[in-house]
């Protein structure tokens, strides 16, 4: 009984210290998201799953990730209402999809698309030790060797 109490109350107590100005439900969600975004180098919050995106913007991000052959965790916000609202509060960003690299919010669909076009995405991936498939393809092709 004592053990049970301790197990149930301790996390609440800890959360209350960390985020006294926030209601408990938010703090719990924030902690959950914190863990999720740090669980993998690249994490995507989207509508639907990579094999069946349920929104054009989410699909665009999936296609970009596929082009660069990035390994990533994806989370379907439609499956969890707490996460759907929680992720917007967490990153202070009003829309889904949302992409995190190394636990940091990078952007939504527009930003990913522009980073892809400018080549910035390849650089960001390189920083976390992921080699973009586009880079590998460029190295293997003799044409781009000549350019260098």
């Amino acid at each position: 009984m004592n053990n049970l109490l301790r197990r149930n109350l301790l996390p609440i107590y800890n959360n209350a210290i960390k985020l006294t100005y926030r209601p408990f439900a938010d703090a719990a969600t924030k902690e959950k998201i914190d863990k999720i975004v740090k669980n993998n180098k690249v994490v995507v919050f989207m509508k639907g799953v990579p094999d069946a995106p349920r929104c054009g913007f989410s699909n665009a991000v999936v296609q970009i990730m596929r082009m660069h052959a990035v390994p990533y965790d994806s989370h379907d916000v439609l499956a969890d209402e707490n996460i759907r609202q929680g992720i917007k509060d967490y990153s202070n960003w009003p829309t889904i999809p949302q992409v995190f690299i190394n636990g940091e919010f990078v952007g939504g669909c527009d930003i990913m698309l522009q980073m892809h076009q400018s080549g910035e995405l390849v650089e960001e991936l390189k920083k976390v030790g992921i080699k973009s498939a586009l880079l590998t393809a460029a190295e293997e092709s003799p044409k781009s060797e000549e350019k260098k």
Partner: peptide, 18 residues
Amino acid sequence: PLLARHRLVNSVLQEELK
């Protein structure tokens, strides 16, 4: 940077974006 630019626009349109 891009993210800061988009955040600026988002903050101006905070109410509308809801």
